[in-house]
Computed example of a mutant assay.
Amino acid sequence: MDNNLQLRPLEKEDLNFIYNMRTNPNIMDYWFEEPYTTKEKMNKEYENSLNSDSHRSFILYHANERVGYLGLFDIDKRHRNAEFAIMFDPAHQGKGYAAQATRLTVEYGFNQLNLHKIYLYVVKHNEKAIHLYEKVGFEIEGELKEHFFVDGSYHDALMMGLLRKDYNNE
Results as ranks from 00 to 15, higher is better:
Thr105Leu: 05
Gln112Pro: 06
Tyr108Trp: 06
Tyr108Asn: 02
His116Met: 05
His116Thr: 06
Glu127Arg: 15
Val122Leu: 07
Phe110Gln: 02
Glu139Tyr: 08
Asn126Tyr: 07
Thr105Arg: 12
Phe138Thr: 01
Glu134Val: 07
Ile118Val: 14
Asn111Lys: 15
Leu115Lys: 01
Leu120Ser: 01
Ala101Tyr: 08
His125Glu: 15
Ile130Met: 04
Ala99Asn: 14
Ala129Thr: 06
Lys128Trp: 03
Glu143Pro: 12
Thr102Gln: 04
Lys117Glu: 14
Gly96Leu: 08
Ile130Thr: 14
Tyr97Pro: 10
Tyr121Phe: 14
Phe138Val: 04
Val136His: 00
Asn126Arg: 13
Gly142Ile: 05
Glu143His: 09
Tyr119Leu: 10
Gly109Met: 03
Asn114Leu: 08
Glu139Trp: 00
Ala99Cys: 12
Glu134Met: 12
Arg103Ala: 08
Leu132Tyr: 07
Val106Leu: 03
Gly137His: 03
Gln100Ala: 10
Gln100Pro: 07
Thr105Pro: 05
Leu132Glu: 07
Ile118Leu: 06
Gly142Val: 12
Gly109Ile: 04
Thr102Leu: 02
His125Ala: 13
Ala101Pro: 11
Tyr97Ala: 04
Gly109Glu: 00
Val122Phe: 05
Ala129Ile: 06
Glu139Met: 13
Lys124Asn: 13
Glu134Lys: 15
Tyr119Pro: 02
Leu115Ser: 06
Ile130Trp: 09
Thr102Lys: 00
His125Leu: 13
Ala129Leu: 11
Gly142Phe: 06
Arg103Lys: 15
His116Lys: 13
Gly109Arg: 03
Glu141Val: 06
Leu104Tyr: 00
Leu115Phe: 01
Leu104Glu: 01
Gln112Arg: 12
Lys135Phe: 01
Leu132Gln: 00
Gly96Lys: 03
Tyr119His: 15
Ala99Tyr: 09
Ile140Tyr: 11
Ala99Trp: 03
Lys128Ser: 13
Gly137Gln: 01
Arg103Tyr: 07
Tyr108Leu: 02
Asn126Trp: 04
Ile140Val: 15
Glu127Pro: 12
Gly137Ser: 04
Thr105His: 01
His131Asp: 12
Thr105Lys: 03
Ala99Gln: 14
Leu113Pro: 11
Tyr133Gln: 02
Val136Leu: 00
Gly96Arg: 00
Val106Cys: 07
Gly109Trp: 01
His125Gly: 12
Lys128Met: 11
Asn126Gln: 10
Leu104Asp: 01
Tyr121Lys: 14
His131Thr: 14
Val123Leu: 11
Val123Asn: 13
Ile130Leu: 10
Lys117Gln: 14
Asn111Gln: 12
Gln100Asp: 13
